[in-house]
């Protein structure tokens, strides 16, 4: 676990009231609704949620790679204090890859099948760093051996289809770290892989980021991966943040009823339970997000206020929880109980 960074330190990435919309013929869909978080240098922030929670969109919105008609409709994204959400594409291209690296879920679609791995590595290195062809190739071979590919001097001239899934994901990671970015956005990097390979990839990401002090925004639906890797966790539900806090708190002692349900729903090895906790119903569609707190129709602890007013994140110890149960008035009158 990484040492807790000083809270007065300026965050590497700040996201303030980010809102992503999709205009459609039947009205505007709000896919990411007013979320704020930050990532400190060298920190691993896990972003979890079920499908449709808007976690991948948050990742792509940070580097402004949203597919039209999706667009950032409000809020700010700041990298090292500088706004990047309103930069022209031309300038953003220098930030993507150079300062922010990306790792996507499917390693086959993020590599070009028509070029050798070496060509793709060299191209990326030379785009971002002032290097000659020979230097770039040397650096490429170094990177491949760093991500654990054996005989890199031979394999650098092979095509992506000649590598297995786990190997391809290693190459994608090599591409993401090749310009020493200060932030890597990893969107479900291990979802397509087997458990044994998953452990290898997580280990690799952790090691590289630790060595180079790179911050990671790790987007996944797998709580196990989060528990092992992240320093802090943001839990998303229906495009909103439900809870943000240190990983121990979120996993072991979640505050938000949704996080509690989510943790109870995960079976654990060696713990023989008759039934898993289940959250009835399903995540609402974007067209029919409930009023007030988006989770209230499924929430076992909902009361009338949840139906009408939308909760803002409320600080509870080190976490921030968007739930009326933790509103000051109720906490003071002793109404909440664990």
């Amino acid at each position: 676990m990484m040492a807790q960074t000083d809270s007065s330190e300026t965050p590497l990435l700040e996201v303030l009231n980010l809102r992503v919309e999709f205009p459609t013929r039947r009205g505007t869909l709000v896919a990411v609704d007013d979320i704020s978080f930050d990532i400190k240098p060298g920190e691993v922030l896990g972003v979890v949620g079920e499908s449709g929670a808007g976690k991948s969109l948050t990742g792509t919105a940070v580097i402004n790679l949203l597919e039209p008609p999706g667009r950032i409709a409000g809020g700010e994204v700041r990298l090292k204090g500088q706004r990047i959400d309103n930069l022209p594409q031309e300038k953003l291209r220098h930030i993507r890859g150079r300062q922010i690296g990306m790792v996507f879920q499917d390693p086959l679609t993020s590599l070009n099948p028509l070029y050798t791995v070496g060509y793709q590595l060299e191209e990326t290195i030379r785009t971002h760093m002032n290097m000659s062809e020979g230097q770039a190739r040397k650096r490429g071979i170094e990177l491949l051996s760093e991500v654990g590919i054996s005989a890199p001097q031979d394999r650098i001239d092979q095509y992506p289809h000649q590598f297995s899934g786990g190997m391809r994901q290693r190459i994608v990671i090599a591409l993401a770290v090749c310009a020493n970015p200060s932030l890597i956005i990893a969107d479900e990097p291990t979802t397509a892989l087997d458990v044994s390979i998953q452990a290898q990839i997580i280990d690799l990401l952790k090691r590289l980021c630790h060595e180079q002090g790179t911050a990671v925004m790790l987007i996944t639906h797998d709580m196990g991966v989060i528990a092992e890797t992240a320093d802090r966790v943001a839990v998303m539900y229906a495009g909103r943040l439900a809870e943000v806090g240190p990983v121990q708190n979120v996993i072991k002692q979640p505050y938000h009823p949704y996080t509690k349900g989510l943790m109870g729903a995960i079976p654990t090895v060696g713990q023989k339970l008759e039934r898993l906790t289940q959250i009835d119903g399903a995540m609402p569609r974007l067209t029919e997000i409930p009023s007030g707190c988006a989770f209230h129709p499924r929430c076992p602890k909902a009361f009338d206020r949840c139906d009408t007013e939308r909760p803002d994140p409320i600080a509870v110890e080190e976490s921030k929880v968007a739930c009326w149960l933790y509103d000051d008035a109720r906490v003071l009158s002793g109404e909440t109980e664990q």
């Binding site: 458990v195 196990g224 092992e228 996993i251 072991k252």
Partner: peptide, 11 residues
């Protein structure tokens, strides 16, 4: 090895 590779949720 498979059992070793399971992510540790208990932390």
């Amino acid at each position: 090895m498979l059992l070793d590779a399971i992510p540790d949720l208990e932390m």
